[in-house]
Design a binder for these strands. Sequence first.
RNA 1: GGAGAAAUGGCAGAGUGGUCGAAUGCGGCAGUCUUGAAAACUGUUGAGGGUCACACCUCCGGGGGUUCGAAUCCCUCUUUCUCCGCCA
Length: 423
Amino acid sequence: MLQVPFIRENKELVVERLAKRNIDANQMVNDVLSLDEDRRRIQTSLDNILAESNTLSKEIGNLFKSGEAEKANLLKTKSGELKEASKELAESLNDTSEALKELLYKIPNVPNEVVPKGDSDEDNEEIFKEGDIPVLHDEALPHWELAKKYDIIDFELGNKITGAGFPVYKGKGAKLQRALINYFLDKNTEAGYSEFQLPHLVNEASGFGTGQLPDKEGQMYHVGEDNLYLIPTAEVPGTNIFRDVVLNEGDLPIGITGYTPCFRREAGSYGAHVRGLNRLHQFDKVEILRVEHPSKSYNALDGMVNHVKTILQELKLPYRILRLCGGDLGFTSALTYDFEVFSTAQDRWLEVSSVSNFETFQANRLKLRFKNSNGKNELAHTLNGSSLALPRVLAGILENYQTKDGVVIPDVLQGYTGFSIIN
RNA sequence: GGAGAAAUGGCAGAGUGGUCGAAUGCGGCAGUCUUGAAAACUGUUGAGGGUCACACCUCCGGGGGUUCGAAUCCCUCUUUCUCCGCCA
């Protein structure tokens, strides 16, 4: 959620930057400013009435003490009138504040200067590319065929137990999955992130805190009886650690990592692009999160990008980094880099990580602040990224590492799997 | 799931109708002393709104009510703790 004072002082900039997302924000911004003006005006009148009423109450108390009941009763009448007036104003203040909040919820984050304007993923900017695309043998298969051939992932069994998009990993498939999780967590903790195990269900307040609610309610699985939501990413429980928190400046930066399964309804998805592991309702992901001083958050973002790079380099997967254009940028993000692994057998790029700086957008809603050097509370910056999401990394490994004899396990993982080939 | 107790500032913990945004202690910050540090002493120290700045307003778990006036009384929800039951 954007801050009203920021919008007030940077109106042109906000409109101009939001245009990168192909949004004409002029009307919304004007509405915000006029609602805010209304709010302040009503608040002032209400405050005045309450002040008068407070003074009156004190006088009444004093009059009763000194035995002047008659005078006191006279003032009581007056106080009653003030109460009526304050009730009306309080209601109108509440309405105005709510309307303002509703509107603010609908305005996405202001993209960073370097975000390219654009409509869709076609307009994302490739900023880096590395790794050799392997030349596969003639009978190379897409990962869902390999999964079947070596009996390591059973999509039909998952279908039977739960439904489409809930695969069952078996044998070496399950072990490779666990190896990847451990490998990612180890890399992240080596880089200074401290490991957390987080709840997989969150309450409504947490959903609001990170912005999944109210906008993306339909994307999360909801447990109605207890009013809890299955997490779509560790970002939700992880970031909500810091809801309503005031940190000391010295606590920054904070980096945490955690492995969780992720649950996404993905309403409306279908077709060849969602085949196999490409898009699932339940998948595993290791996430990294940072809380940063505003002056350092973009350095931190670069650091996260480099960190994810080294992991993909070690796995020897061909990958590229995209700077997302305005049209593809997430609602809460100011700048996002996507990592894509080239999946040879499918002949397409698969997104395996998304690393973002949210600046104060999340912190404002979360009320995540730190005491700055002036002793003032200031909103912190939050960042997060996948490091990494499992299924498409797995797909990339299966497809790129396949040989006539089987799927070779990348060197760095062999210590974790305990085997060097799936055949 | 049953019975009881509780929820106050960064933490601990007073406060049961007006003088309470709230004693006291710890912690934090600034200063005195010291070569420096510690100790001791002095001062200062919640959040949000509002204002050029003050004034002023709101907040004592959430919501509602009683009252001229609520941290304090009533209702309700939530959470925590203790005991019992169940259980990986």
